[in-house]
Simulated scan of single mutants.
Amino acid sequence: MPQFDFLTLGAQVFGLLITLSLFYYFSINTVIPNFVEVEKSLEQKLIKNTTSISAMNLDLTNNKKLINNSYKLFMQ
């Protein structure tokens, strides 16, 4: 079998190193920047949603106060 032959071991290691270095170069230049872009967009969406939720919470608190005051006025 060629994979266990000591005569072809050098060529196999050389091919493996070339393949791994090309994969590493591709990953550094293409894949990782795409992940960073996705992370940045998700972070911006999270910030936007957090501010929306804060505003919504304030509106709900104001509505609760308005309903309580209206109920008190109605009962008088």
Score class of each variant (00 low, 15 high):
Met1Thr: 06
Met1His: 07
Pro2Trp: 10
Pro2Tyr: 13
Gln3Phe: 15
Gln3Asn: 15
Phe4Ile: 12
Phe4Glu: 14
Phe4His: 13
Phe4Leu: 13
Asp5Lys: 02
Asp5Tyr: 02
Asp5Leu: 00
Leu7Ser: 15
Leu7Phe: 14
Thr8Arg: 01
Gly10His: 12
Ala11Trp: 01
Ala11Gly: 06
Gln12Cys: 03
Val13Glu: 04
Phe14Arg: 15
Phe14Glu: 15
Gly15Ile: 00
Gly15Tyr: 01
Leu17Val: 08
Leu17Arg: 09
Ile18Met: 01
Leu20Val: 10
Leu20Lys: 08
Ser21Phe: 07
Leu22Arg: 08
Leu22Tyr: 11
Leu22Ala: 11
Leu22Asn: 11
Leu22Ile: 10
Phe23Gly: 11
Phe23Leu: 10
Phe23Thr: 09
Phe23Cys: 08
Tyr24Cys: 07
Tyr25Cys: 02
Tyr25Val: 00
Tyr25Asn: 03
Tyr25Ile: 02
Tyr25Phe: 04
Tyr25Met: 02
Phe26Ala: 13
Phe26Ile: 10
Phe26Asp: 13
Phe26Glu: 13
Phe26Ser: 12
Ser27His: 09
Ile28Glu: 14
Ile28Met: 09
Asn29Phe: 15
Thr30Ile: 04
Thr30Pro: 01
Val31Cys: 01
Val31Gly: 00
Pro33Ile: 00
Asn34Leu: 12
Asn34Glu: 15
Asn34Ile: 09
Phe35Glu: 06
Glu37Pro: 00
Glu37Ile: 02
Glu39Asn: 09
Glu39Asp: 13
Glu39Arg: 09
Ser41Phe: 06
Ser41Ile: 06
Ser41Gly: 00
Ser41Asp: 14
Leu42Met: 07
Leu42Glu: 09
Leu42Tyr: 04
Glu43Tyr: 08
Glu43Ala: 14
Glu43Asn: 14
Glu43Leu: 11
Lys45Leu: 15
Leu46Gly: 00
Leu46Met: 02
Leu46Ala: 06
Leu46Ser: 06
Ile47Gln: 10
Ile47Leu: 08
Lys48Arg: 05
Lys48Asp: 10
Lys48Asn: 07
Asn49Thr: 05
Asn49Trp: 04
Thr50Leu: 02
Thr51Lys: 13
Thr51Cys: 01
Thr51Gln: 14
Ser52Ala: 10
Ser52Val: 02
Ser52Ile: 04
Ile53Ser: 05
Ser54Tyr: 01
Ser54Met: 01
Ser54Asp: 07
Ser54Leu: 04
Ala55His: 10
Ala55Asn: 15
Met56Ser: 13
Met56Asn: 11
Met56His: 11
Asn57Arg: 12
Asn57Val: 03
Asn57Thr: 11
Leu58Ala: 09
Leu58Phe: 01
Asp59Trp: 04
Asp59Cys: 01
Asp59Arg: 04
Asp59Thr: 03
Leu60Pro: 01
Leu60Val: 03
Leu60Glu: 06
Leu60Lys: 03
Asn63Glu: 10
Lys64Glu: 07
Lys65Arg: 08
Lys65Asp: 14
Leu66Arg: 10
Leu66Asn: 09
Leu66Asp: 11
Ile67Tyr: 12
Asn68Thr: 04
Asn68Val: 01
Asn69Trp: 02
Asn69Leu: 03
Asn69Glu: 12
Asn69Phe: 02
Asn69Pro: 01
Tyr71Gln: 13
Lys72Asn: 08
Lys72Asp: 11
Lys72Gly: 00
Lys72Thr: 04
Leu73Thr: 05
Leu73Ala: 08
